[in-house]
Design a binder for these strands. Structure first.
Lengths: 201, 201
DNA sequence: TTAAACAGACCGGTCATCCTGTTTTTAATA
DNA sequence: TATTAAAAACAGGATGACCGGTCTGTTTAA
């Protein structure tokens, strides 16, 4: 009794698409306004969904937040901060290009919303251990990949050294983004890039 | 008719003390649980105050948050991150000692709550411009003081250079604290300090 | 006498979650 | 392949808790 032989269906189920759309919208809102300042109603409306649909895919707001971190923030960090850097000839040039690209984007846009990982990690790490672990997993992978690449570039580098170097790069980026968000300026990014250029091998 | 000639007063007004206690408690709760996750009731209870008292000193939660940033966070940054560093013979040794001190404190405590400035700045910067400006003012003063000291140490250093150097130090600290909060470990702090030791003049 | 300081209840609104019902899709069965 | 049972997907209203702000009243201090 879904529809008559010719009549259109009242709707078409697209679970994957619906889930994906909700995730996209939630990631965007959490990033721009923050997790606590975004209501599930906001997500429902912006996604053109309903409370029932959202509840079906994400029974609680926490489940939604966790999925955003694991499936969207992780992907974005990978796409903007890891893969392009790895594709560069040398890690140093890749890192500097990354800083420059982000700074350029900040200058183009009118608002600096900050690093999505940092934003959610800072807001949610102390609220719930699950959020903390999810954020930490992304940080750890990020550090691990950069450290590995530092060693590939210079096999003489001690593993301990490579890890510390990677940590500094990521910390400088995270901190610079925090300062950029507060000042609504890309200058901290450019300053840090200029200094890292001198340090990096 | 406040009290009988001998009877004790029902209470003793202590406006400054009350205000100060509320600020202390609010700063602590905002730092440990976050601004949005802390209700004004939480503050009232923890401070042993009443809704009326809190409302008398801080008409809105935003006013309370702003006062925490301007009167507590700023003070803490000054006391732990600026003055000790300035008192050191050279800025470099002061900065490294600061990193080491914070790392040691993290290792002693069981929980890493992060940098108070960063915590509140990240959570509130996009929520309200006033919060953003208040946070930015602290960042700017911090950068300014360190940059000035870099130049004092080495008059040959270009002003632009000194500022960038100061920005990197603070960004590395902020970012390392973010990573420390996510990993509940002081390692990012120590790694960054080790790398900064090589870069700083 | 007057204003400041504090007490404590109250209220309108929001929010996350739950619940009941409907429609679509899948899967089993014959 | 046709039928049907069952599950998944979605719709949308209901609810109860909580939160921030307000308001009135009382006590203390200037």
């Amino acid at each position: 009794m879904a529809q008559d032989s010719i009549g259109k269906p009242k709707r078409v189920n697209d679970p994957q698409g619906m889930r994906s759309r909700i995730l996209d919208v939630a990631a965007d809102l959490f990033q721009r306004r923050g997790y606590h300042s975004t209501s599930v109603q906001d997500v429902v409306q912006a996604a053109g969904a309903t409370g029932g649909a959202l509840h079906h895919h994400f029974p609680t707001k926490k489940a939604l937040g966790l999925a955003v971190i694991e499936e969207r923030v992780a992907r974005e960090v990978n796409a903007t901060a890891i893969e392009p850097v790895l594709r560069a000839d040398r890690l140093k040039t890749g890192v500097l290009a990354f800083f420059s690209a982000v700074a350029g984007e900040l200058e183009r846009n009118q608002a600096v919303t900050g690093c999505p990982l940092n934003n959610l990690a800072m807001e949610l790490s102390l609220a719930d251990p699950d959020f903390r672990h999810a954020s930490n997993a992304i940080f750890e992978r990020w550090v691990g990949v950069l450290a590995q690449r530092f060693q590939d570039d210079d096999p003489a580098l001690a593993p301990r050294q490579a890890g510390a170097l990677a940590t500094l790069v990521i910390a400088a980026y995270s901190g610079a983004m925090a300062m950029a968000k507060a000042s609504q300026s890309a200058l901290p990014l450019r300053d840090c890039a200029a200094q890292l250029e001198k340090l990096l091998p």
